[in-house]
Amino acid sequence: MNDQTLIDKAKASLGDKVLDITNPAPRRIFIKLKVDDLLAAVNWLKNEMGFTHLATITGVDLGQAFELIYHFANSFTCVNLRTEIPRDNPLLPSICQLIPGAVLYERELQDMFGIVVQNIPDGRPLVLPDDWPAGNYPLRKDWKYERPPEVIPGGKR
């Protein structure tokens, strides 16, 4: 199977759920979807096309919305499902029922962007420290970090 057959199959099976489909480089396919269709698309990819390996989930802050990219890979190509959720209501369905290995990436998304993942089996913080102030999401673009002044031990000489 090559990229073109996969694109054709995606168009055939997902129909008008696909908002946009691009193939910018060999073995890289980007499919754009609505967030409500995400689970259906993951299900299709996994059960019909055999994409069982989720490489990671990337979140990008676009300003008004968060863009999420699910990178799937198997031995002949790499499919990236792209979806957007609004910033003021960041709700995302969990795909852990389909792909159990996704839980770490979803926990990371919660930490870094403040996205609420619905039905996540285990939603505790993953990477941020225990004493992290709530409501701070480091990877949002409007979050700025001020480095506290450092002390020079023993004073300046």
């Binding site: 069982t52 390996h53 989720l54 490489a55 792909i99 159990p100 290995g101 996704a102």
Partner: peptide, 9 residues
């Protein structure tokens, strides 16, 4: 099966 399902690499 587990290795595939849990996305081991």
């Amino acid at each position: 099966e587990d290795a595939i399902a849990l996305c081991a690499v």
